[in-house]
Design a protein around this nucleic acid. Structure first.
Lengths: 294, 294
DNA sequence: AAAAATACCTGACTAAAGTCAGGTAATGCA
DNA sequence: TGCATTACCTGACTTTAGTCAGGTATTTTT
């Protein structure tokens, strides 16, 4: 990484935290401590929130949050009720007054955003918004975490279900997981194989698997990215990790198959140095077979 | 301004303050209150700083800053000495230990920046850095403030001097302010005329003037942007303001002259709807004359 | 030379933010 | 059924941040 890049990131950090951060705080606290304001904002995002979820999202101490909630209850902006499904847990709702406050914060946030744009000329404004979208997307991309996980965890299963559902929709002939060269959790468990999961803010957004074929070769399967996370390079990073695992396992060759409907996947494999080979398995859904020497 | 733009700015604000802001704080406070850390950082930027300048830059209360300095003195990271030139004022120096702390913060800042970039692929990284540069530049542009000010203030004179110096350098024949259709402060003082100044973070970075020629027409002069602030649309905004002042004053027509060396200025005038006319004054440095109906 | 202004300091506050050690009620599990 | 766990609460703190009213030394102005 060049010094120049680092320097640019640091300048960016400085300017943005000053302009946006400081403005944001002053706009949004409006006579109420920032902690309370943030709480109203979080609570307003949905009909009701569990206290535990607030605690996690805002990173607050249990006692501290409790006190904040008591204060907001005193102001009549929230109600805290015990949860029907679990009597220990409690849920936070905004009262009508709270809804009003939430809307006010929303209007202020809009004004804050507008105050950043309004001094600019239309062309500059368009460029700023586009650059912000790019920064946002790539910053989010840079916080995607990829880790080897058990293939039978709830998150792993969720990803695989999404993946199958997408294949069913996209394949001409539909997709039946039982026919399609399925592999089971055991085959994705070291040392028979590996399952990697990509998460954004803790939420699974992609997966991939590597299965040992023999001592020298492995097969890559089930590489999937959630639609909302596409264009962030997640699949590439999953492949990076899977290939690294293959290298560690001593494989000389990685193989994979794919359906003709998955054109983005073809492009990705080609770009990463996979070359098309003849059929090496009897997967009824496969139209193309690739391999790459590690 | 469209809702879509506002929404994008708000998403950007949220993502950036979360990622950058939170990381920054945790990285940079390292066991020391953030206020003290910021102080060390500011003090380290130069050999020595006046307390008053720190107070201004960090926006701190005099008593509060004083206490922070005592605390840092106690930790042995700064020395506060009276200033030779003015016995009331005091100067802050980092001790050797303080220098070490400063360097540590620098390294941490670099690491923080690197941690945002490192998960990305080279192409993404390049795009992120470019987008950050764009956002930084345009956000800075959006905080430029333009105001009508007295033409004989220190900042106004500074701008005009810079402007003259640049003309001297760029004009084939050099430039002598006494010959060049000079106008004096009185002519830029309402209602005879107006002087507008552009500031970025309080520092003057551009100026412009409008002078009444008669009841129906005015002349725009001395539109200048500091080299480091170019490409931010400052000149356009100065022109906007000057034309608005002209409209308020009831002028029907604005005129201006310019030297052939100032090609960017020509482009700007043409883009804003000025059309070239014949010589209307005897400015020896002018090669082109323009006017625009308001 | 006296008066006014300045630059900083000290003391005495307050509010906000955060921490930690118990405590209570509800739930899950053996 | 009883014991461990959980989800949250309360009380008793500390730290950080910030404000404000004087006070002292120095410089500038008159």
């Amino acid at each position: 990484m060049q010094n120049e890049e680092i320097g640019q990131v640091r300048r960016f950090n400085r300017v943005v935290t000053q302009r946006v951060g400081a403005l944001q705080d002053s706009y949004l606290s409006r006579g109420r401590p920032l902690g309370e304001a943030r709480l109203i904002f979080e609570a307003g995002l949905s009909e009701s929130v569990d206290v535990s979820s607030l605690r996690q999202r805002l990173g607050l101490d249990s006692g501290y949050l409790s006190r904040l909630l008591r204060s907001l209850e005193g102001q009549g902006v929230v109600e805290v009720r015990r949860k029907a499904a679990d009597g220990r847990a409690r849920q936070v709702h905004l009262t009508q007054k709270g809804r009003g406050e939430f809307e006010t914060y929303n209007v202020l946030s809009d004004q804050l955003a507008a105050s950043l744009l309004s001094p600019l000329q239309p062309a500059q404004r368009t460029r700023l918004v586009a650059a912000m979208a790019e920064v946002e997307r790539l910053l989010r991309a840079s916080t995607v975490e990829i880790a080897v996980e058990p293939a039978d965890s709830a998150d792993a299963r969720w990803c695989l279900e999404q993946y199958y559902a997408e294949l069913t929709e996209r394949f001409e002939a539909g997709f039946d997981p039982l026919l399609g060269n399925t592999f089971h959790a055991a085959e994705m468990t070291p040392p028979a194989g590996w399952f990697v999961l990509a998460r954004l803010d803790g939420v699974p957004i992609g997966c991939g698997a590597l299965k040992a074929l023999d001592a020298d070769s492995g097969e890559i399967k089930r590489v999937w990215t959630a639609p909302e996370a596409r264009g962030m390079g997640v699949a590439s990073r999953l492949m990076d990790r899977l290939e690294a695992l293959g290298r560690e396992a001593g494989f000389k060759i990685l193989q994979l198959d794919t359906n003709k409907a998955l054109s983005e996947a073809h492009a990705l494999y080609r770009k990463r140095g996979y070359r098309e080979i003849g059929r090496y398995n009897d997967n009824p859904y496969a139209h193309h077979w690739f391999e790459k020497a590690l």
